[in-house]
Every structure is written in structure tokens, then in C-alpha cells.
């Protein structure tokens, strides 16, 4: 198994845990019924570190899982997460991840873009979503997710399976 495949599998496992936590206990730390998008943080971490292919495959898989756990039509989250995983993966090798500022800016920026894409997809496909970009809930989610990004990035960097191998570091 390659380093990328191992990292993808570990991230998928972490995402499954994140989806479960979001569905159950996360509401206890919700701000005005809004929970942070921890799956987005995990996806961005993987995509920026490993590239577009692991990013989009993981994004698609976790998106389908979210669709199945929700009243969302099948494909809604899958489409959004695939695009996010691919787009963030294109930044692989071009982004220096400092401990604080870059994770915050990256996650906040992508969370806003994800919201815009969700509104566009919902409009085109006639899917009624509960939180639009003009709702306070959307901006709470963006801020909450952005603030959570630096500590989660720090913790994820400690996981051995997600670290680049010696050969990858040398390249």
C-alpha cells in the first residue's frame, strides 16, 4: 500500500468518525444550532498535503456517506466534496501551512466557496436547503469551522500515517 493510499484510508476513517460525531454529540457544542464542518477541515488537510486525486476520491466517498445519512438527495454532498477535494488538491505543493494563519484562511475561504456552490447547486437542481449564504447560520458555520481549523490541523499533523514519507519529503 502506498503512502497516499494509507493516508486516504486513515482520513476516510477519521471522516466517518466526524460524520458520526456531527450526527450525534456535536449538537451539544453547537452555536445557535450550527455545528462546525469538521469533515471539510479533514478533507482540506488531506487534499493540500496529498494532492487532487486523494482529495477528490475521499471527498466523493464522504459526500455519498453524508447524503445517505441525511434527507439530502443522493449526490448533493458528493458533488460539493468532490469539487472541494479536487480544487484544494491543486494547491498541493504550492501552499506553506504555518500553524495558525494559513489553516484558518484556507478553511474559511473554502467554507465560503462551499456555501456559494451549495446555493448554486440547490438552485439549479431545485433542492430546498435550510441554510443559505444570507442566513446567519451560514456565517456562524464559516467562523466556527475556521477557528477550529488550526488546532485540528495541528492534531492531524501528529498522526504518523498522514505525514509524508522520507522520500516524499526529499522530493
Amino acid at each position: 500500500m502506498t503512502s497516499n493510499q494509507r493516508a486516504t484510508l486513515v482520513t476516510l476513517g477519521l471522516m466517518a468518525v466526524a460524520v458520526l460525531l456531527n450526527s450525534t454529540v456535536m449538537r451539544f457544542v453547537a452555536i445557535r444550532d450550527t455545528t462546525p464542518d469538521t469533515v471539510l477541515i479533514l478533507l482540506l488537510f488531506l487534499a493540500v498535503r496529498r494532492g487532487a486525486m486523494p482529495g477528490q476520491v475521499t471527498g466523493f466517498a464522504v459526500g455519498v456517506a453524508e447524503d445517505l445519512a441525511s434527507v439530502a438527495p443522493l449526490g448533493f454532498h458528493a458533488l460539493l466534496r468532490t469539487i472541494v477535494g479536487f480544487g484544494a488538491g491543486l494547491l498541493h505543493g504550492y501552499l506553506f501551512l504555518d500553524p495558525l494563519l494559513m489553516p484558518f484562511l484556507l478553511v474559511t475561504g473554502v467554507a465560503i466557496l462551499k456555501g456559494l456552490m451549495a446555493s448554486l447547486v440547490a438552485t439549479v437542481f431545485g433542492v430546498p436547503i435550510d441554510v443559505g449564504i444570507l442566513d446567519a447560520g451560514f456565517w456562524i458555520e464559516v467562523a466556527y469551522t475556521g477557528v477550529l481549523a488550526p488546532p485540528l490541523f495541528y492534531l492531524l499533523a501528529k498522526i504518523k500515517a498522514l505525514r509524508p514519507s522520507k522520500r516524499e519529503r526529499a522530493r
Binding site: 487532487a52 486525486m53 438527495p73 443522493l74 449526490g75 458528493a78 468532490t82
Partner: peptide
Amino acid sequence: TGVSFIALVAVSVVMLAISA
């Protein structure tokens, strides 16, 4: 990577079009 991306997006859109 590009071909896989297009394939995954296409699958998502088809699923979305059908299920929505």
C-alpha cells in the same frame, strides 16, 4: 486526476438529477 475528477463529478450530477 483530471479524468477521475470529471467522472466523479458526472456520477454525482447524475445521482443528484435522479434522486432530486
